[in-house]
């Protein structure tokens, strides 16, 4: 009885994951205390479904900066999806933004006969391109997430369109500030963040030409660096109307932002993604909202797609 129930849950989860991730899940989901505006006009590229026959081995989710709480939901979904189809799965990659370490792992995965498929969250497209070609040539299904490679040599891209995510954040920002004032962004470095912030800045400028858009500031991914960057940025831009924190690490800065609000800072703080601390800050009214990607649904897709006949 218990087995039947779990099978049913798994079956529903599989169907929901595939449908939501491949078709409908490509548009960012928002967790804001606002009425959501119309979706951004650009739609993410729909990836071809990999039809590689199932093989023995392990499916790897290769990322970077793996200590980021952003991955928690994705890894959970990835592991559950793998379990549901009886496949071994593993989340691998460096804990920091170490490209050399990510490339080393990439090379090792391709060389290993254990590798059944690779889902790559890129840190650098150029650096990864030779490995993608090698993986595809060896028949290892190669799927990219987070941001699509311009080379298109991968089997598929499954993930959010970062430009769209940036545009959607810009739409909310425009509505929140009534197209007036000064807007800034903070994030960690990375190609997906570059796309996201570029999409945000360009779209905001197009719909609110009078808004002043400040240069983005970046942090190194540690809590201390995030805090010092946030504080310095607010001093450099004292008239900021809205700050968009474009990566998933905003939640840990909630206390600092609360202090600023207590000191009379009126700047609106728009976060990204759904770590627990971020959601709590939105609920508490510390952040005005969060532009979120549901990676719990999107990350399982490569695993499920590989298993599909």
């Amino acid at each position: 009885m218990k087995i039947e129930t779990s099978k049913g849950v798994v079956a529903v989860a599989v169907v929901l994951s595939l449908v939501a991730g491949l078709i409908g899940g490509l548009v960012p989901i928002a967790v804001v205390k606002l009425t959501a505006p119309e979706p951004a006009p650009v739609v993410a590229e729909v990836a071809p479904v990999v039809t590689e026959p199932a093989r023995e081995g392990t499916y790897y989710f290769l990322a970077g900066n793996n200590a980021d709480p952003f991955y928690v939901d994705g890894v959970k979904g990835f592991n559950e999806a793998a379990k549901s189809v009886g496949m071994k799965a593993e989340f691998v990659g460096p804990m920091d933004l170490n490209l050399a370490a990510q490339m080393k792992t990439f090379e090792e995965l391709i060389a290993s006969p254990e590798t059944k498929g690779i889902f790559w969250y890129p840190m650098d497209f150029n650096a990864g391109e030779p490995f993608i070609k090698e993986a595809v040539a060896k028949g290892i299904p190669m799927v990219i997430g987070a941001a699509d490679s311009p080379f298109k040599t991968r089997n598929a891209f499954i993930g959010y369109n970062n430009t769209v995510l940036g545009q959607q954040a810009a739409q909310w920002a425009a509505k929140l500030i009534d197209c007036k004032g000064e807007v800034g962004t903070i994030s960690v470095n990375g190609p997906n963040l570059d796309e996201r912030v570029k999409g945000f800045n360009e779209y905001l400028k197009s719909i609110c030409p009078d808004v002043v858009i400040d240069e983005r500031a970046t942090h190194d991914g540690s809590a201390a660096s995030e805090a010092s960057t946030l504080e310095a940025y607010m001093i450099a831009h004292p008239n900021l109307t809205l700050l968009w924190w474009a990566d998933g690490a905003a939640g840990i800065q909630a206390q600092i932002w609360k202090d600023k609000q207590d000191q009379g800072v009126k700047t609106l703080f728009l976060a990204t993604d759904m770590p627990q601390a971020t959601l709590q800050a939105v609920k508490d009214g510390v952040f005005v909202g969060s532009v979120a990607q549901d990676i719990l649904l999107s990350v399982p897709c490569p695993v499920l797609a590989v298993k599909a006949p």
Partner: peptide, 17 residues
């Protein structure tokens, strides 16, 4: 002290210090 300051104890609290 970082945990006290941020009201959160991050596993990557002072990377690079």
């Amino acid at each position: 002290m970082m945990a006290s300051r941020l009201d959160a104890a991050s596993p990557s609290t002072v990377d690079g210090m």
